[in-house]
């Protein structure tokens, strides 16, 4: 079932980076994720390219198929339309920017096939 949208996507939420710095969710940049992952002992950033976006099981859900990491591993996630992903060099993006803005006041671009999203994996996982 689709993952409900957690509270930290609300505009103004305070996010702690790996070096301790605090930023608002709407002010996060690609470098913040990259730098935080660099100094993390367990987590590593992957590039996950959106390959397909299909309707989900419920009217407000979508199934997004990603090609994850260098190996282009195929991973599907079902999320609500308003769920934001962070696109490299672009920032927050969702399948329904209007809904994300309305529900969470978080400005979003439209998530499209071909977009490359920030995702996490474990260091040393192969």
């Amino acid at each position: 079932s689709p993952v409900a949208l957690p509270p930290f996507f609300m505009r103004g939420s305070i996010i702690q980076l790996a070096d301790g710095e605090l930023k608002r969710v709407e002010d996060l940049k690609t470098e913040d994720f990259i730098h935080s992952a660099e100094i993390s002992s367990e987590l590593k950033i992957d590039s996950s390219t959106v390959e397909r976006i299909d309707d989900g099981q419920t009217p407000n859900a979508v199934v997004i198929q990603f090609a994850v990491g260098e190996l282009k591993a195929q991973v599907c996630v079902e999320v609500l339309l308003e769920y934001p992903f962070f696109v490299f060099g672009q920032g927050w993006s969702s399948c329904s920017p209007d809904r994300t803005t309305r529900l969470f006041e978080l400005s979003c671009a439209k998530l499209c096939v071909g977009d490359v999203c920030v995702s996490l994996t474990l260091r040393g996982l192969r």
Binding site: P6, P7, F8, F9, S13, I14, I15, Q16, L17, A18, L22, V25, L28, D32, F33, S36, S40, L43, D46, S48, F66, V68, G69, L71, A73, Q74, V75, V77, F85, F86, C117, V118, S119, L120, T121, L122, L125
Partner: peptide, 19 residues
Amino acid sequence: VPVFPWHSLVPFLAPTQSD
């Protein structure tokens, strides 16, 4: 004010078994 860790905001996409 709650403070959330950076890694909560991006998905953990563990590759599944490839076909």
